[in-house]
Design a protein around this nucleic acid. Structure first.
Lengths: 252, 252
DNA sequence: AGTGTTTATCGTCAGGCAGACGACTATGAT
DNA sequence: ATCATAGTCGTCTGCCTGACGATAAACACT
């Protein structure tokens, strides 16, 4: 298999981002409006070309920062604040996925706490958080009646894969805390699970499970009543990244 | 983000394969000897360029067939025989991973039953099954004293990721049957788990678990004594792809 | 033929964990 | 004061797992 540089076809390589957050009890993804053809005016996942001297993870972190202002968590520094979880998702390379040229896209998955407001290069009307069910419908409309689906290119497939990855990964890892602010309550964490899985969980069993798993949550000592009702203890994410035994997703 | 074709750097895109099998109670991977620089004479994972009109999965299936003669399972046809499991693993794109040029490699993971003999374009001396521990050592030597490690490029990292994927995936899926021939016994399946995880499992509890999981195994009616001892029932893989609850990997 | 070895298969028992759900606590709203 | 809301602690029951005893059916010896 010779590596003669003239013997292989040239590809463009991009990174596309599935950026997920939980807003108003719903799992939402970041979508940006396309400014030029093809799919001009349609919504798509944020993304862009990988630069010549850039690693794939670097490119994804750069795009994430450009679109949301979020810094990506360095996996080597688990106790870092104010950063989003970022991981490689999958790579999409159908020869016809972009009508103009051969583009291979390395999709990444980012999980972020609820953010003040989206921005896309400072232009708010060209970026939005939309519930994933809206984005994944064959033809979806947002609350303002504007069409938000289907997404451009194969981005519906990418988003679907990203959502499925997130849904399964919070089962056996502490990743759900990436959707929470630095300090959070057990109830807030439970509402994250309920939003991502779109199910209702028993508050008592959930409390027992997460507080009984060593290393998952560490109490900060403080309390809050920001959710109403009795004051709740505040926690922050512990060092444990794997949940064993896992949190079980209820059957249907 | 303009898509001007001159505005992006050109990449070469390859597929690399982690082909795993179980031989002589050990998890083995397919390695091929490099015929030209860089890393000439060293062992590497099989792989090659993605062609201009080819999907990534097609390219991986083609490389797999070229190197092993195996056809890849079509995931839409679960009851297919004589095919290997093939799935995308991850993508590696460090700018310096290939010293000559910018190469992005989409690694794939293939699981195959024990095969008669490896072949690399008909040249057996340039392909071999090697235990993954040998291939992953900082400097490993095969049973014949020939150095087999370290692998070329970043292939040790890719192999390590593939092995970890296989180890975790047989926990919660029926993927371990991909290492078995069409018909197999419970004991043979158990030896697959033991080889992949490098642990010893209790035959009685394992038998209870796999025969008690609906849809995992379907008896064919036949028996065999090819492992010695009391005749064992023959099974084939059932339709179930997910194991719930999962098979638990022992601690330690 | 008998004995040992190997592998397969069935059973038993105790501990751990999850689902269902009762009870109580501490806030803010009316 | 009363109610609604959310949080937290317990109890009970059933399922699953790990540890391990016992039996079954083949082959290899002697």
């Amino acid at each position: 298999m010779p590596y003669d540089p003239s013997a292989f076809p040239a590809f463009a390589v991009t990174v596309d981002l599935v950026v997920l957050t939980v807003r108003r009890h719903a799992l939402c993804a970041l979508a940006v409006r396309r400014g030029e053809p093809p799919f001009q005016g349609r919504w798509a996942l944020p993304g862009g070309f990988v630069r010549a001297d850039e690693d794939l993870a670097q490119a994804a972190a750069r795009e994430l920062a450009e679109e949301t202002g979020l810094r990506a968590h360095d996996p080597a520094v688990p106790a870092q604040d104010n950063g989003a979880h970022l991981e490689q998702l999958a790579t999409y390379g159908d020869p016809k996925r972009d009508p103009r040229m051969r583009v291979v896209s390395v999709a990444h998955l980012a999980l972020a706490p609820d953010l003040p407001a989206p921005r896309a290069g400072g232009d708010a009307s060209n970026a939005r958080w939309a519930p994933v069910e809206e984005l994944l419908q064959p033809s979806g409309y947002g609350r303002d009646g504007e069409p938000v689906a289907p997404l451009a290119f194969d981005h519906a497939q990418i988003l679907s894969d990203g959502v499925e990855r997130a849904r399964s990964k919070i089962e056996y890892s502490s990743l759900a805390t990436a959707f929470c602010p630095t300090e959070f309550t057990v109830g807030e964490l439970r509402r994250v699970y309920e939003a991502v899985w779109a199910v209702a969980l028993d508050p008592r069993n959930f409390h027992r499970k997460v507080t009984g798993t060593p290393g998952f949550l560490v109490p900060t000592g403080g309390t809050t009543t920001r959710q109403g009702g009795r004051p709740a203890q505040l926690f922050r994410a512990g060092g444990a990244t794997l949940l064993n035994p896992p949190m079980l997703r209820p059957e249907v």
